[in-house]
Design a protein around this nucleic acid. Structure first.
Lengths: 241, 241
DNA sequence: CCGCGGCCGTTACACGCCGTTACACGCCGT
DNA sequence: ACGGCGTGTAACGGCGTGTAACGGCCGCGG
């Protein structure tokens, strides 16, 4: 069972009234791709850049194995992790319409991506409406994901942001068939902190506190979710201090 | 000269090496639309919802006149302004692939949108590759815009966020042919605050301070940019306190 | 194998920015 | 004129930050 090319599948949206009604035809998708696009398997090492901002935009990527972070950067050196991508996620779509990539993408562990050369991808989309629809949906989904995080960053305190982050990760793991209650963080505290608009010390403190509350168990990068509902509802109030 | 349907035109990207090389064929775009899609003009009053989260997704919208805010909302009542849309901007693309809209859109002043019924739009895209390409580009652009704000929110202090916001507005006004140095805010302090992940008092303070520094002149919602470079470079240091 | 050094994560403590609260003013529609 | 909303200003307090020191893990070289 090939769970790839789920980039047309809606993920946890903030809209309660909109369940994931979208068709889950992964195999068709991946078969579509392989039939119409010359897919290139590409290994990548930990710490290696999949691409950097400014390099010519020549392909999209589909994560097969591994975990990646996307980094937005400003002229003055400011840097911000804008997301984490894992198996089945599409990478590079944000740069469509530009001559060169718009951000950095770094491998957090060694892995493998499927490279989808863009011109062939484009012509394939023209001939296969289904493929085009999937790409468009994936882009819309990307927007929704980012907006959802803007909501979290704008309305939640530090500890709840971290809790939210863990729940998001748990959900994605579950969707990939992994345990939602026990997993390993592939990214450093600093990466999490940047993504959540915090400092790494604050992330550490939040994790320690959630641990002390009995909601999770932390051991460096190993996470155990002990009380998902507790995390969801808000571990802010009733701090045992 | 019809400046609409510039939703395939790259806006201020964070990538310095990627100037707006994209073709500016607005007229072709709008003609394409009118030829293949039954465009519906629709007036809208101040405070009216263009659509709300959960309503069936039946159309995209193109802003002709007015200013709109998009609001993300959570089950527990939390709310977050995720962006402001003005003349030429596409609205609703984030909901593509869903049965219902994913967020709220509110008119900040009375205006007019062009409604693009979605099924016709979809079939038109299939027949007119150019149209499809524009839609895809617009979506990618949307992602880049959001990411750019995530960068700002994650790396800048309150005052610089406000400064950044004003510069962004100025740039958009300029692109529409209006003055970049003198304009009126269409949104309340509270809206700005939500968008920038601040409180409205903080926005007030920041504006007052930027005024005191001589970088801008504020009178309620009327803004004058006196020193754009000063705003850009950072009004944080050298506070006159 | 062991020792070493660097990186990452944790914790403690003081400070500062921004949130909180409160109040007054101006604008606007009633 | 009145009331309500949006806005400006100020004092206070707290959350998150900055800084620093410590400790554990891992890779490196001896």
């Amino acid at each position: 069972m090939n769970a790839l090319v789920n980039f047309a599948i809606a993920r946890g949206s903030a809209v309660p009234s909109a369940p994931d009604r979208v068709e889950r035809r992964d195999d068709i998708g991946i078969e579509l791709l392989r039939r119409h696009v010359p897919v290139v398997r590409r290994k990548i090492e930990q710490g290696e850049y999949l691409y950097r901002a400014g390099q010519p935009f020549v392909a999209l990527f589909l994560v097969n194995v591994g975990c990646f972070k996307t980094c937005e950067l400003a002229d003055d050196g400011r840097e911000q992790v804008t997301g984490f991508r894992m198996r089945g996620d599409l990478i590079g779509a944000e740069s469509i319409g530009l001559p060169s990539f718009a951000c950095d993408v770094v491998a957090l562990e060694s892995g493998e991506v499927w490279e989808l050369p863009y011109p062939p991808m484009l012509t394939a989309c023209l001939r296969v409406p289904e493929l085009q629809a999937r790409l468009t949906s994936a882009l819309a989904e990307e927007v929704r994901r980012d907006r959802s995080w803007m909501l979290a960053l704008g309305t939640l305190g530090a500890e709840r942001r971290v809790a939210n982050f863990l729940l998001d990760l748990a959900g994605r793991h579950a969707r990939l068939g992994f345990s939602a209650h026990h997993f390993v963080l592939r990214m450093s505290r600093a990466d999490i902190a940047s993504f959540l608009a915090l400092k790494h010390e604050t992330v550490s403190r939040a994790l320690s506190h959630l641990d002390a509350l009995g909601l999770i168990a932390v051991q460096r990068r190993e996470i155990r979710i002990l009380d998902a509902d507790g995390l969801r509802h808000g571990a802010e109030a009733g701090a045992v201090h």
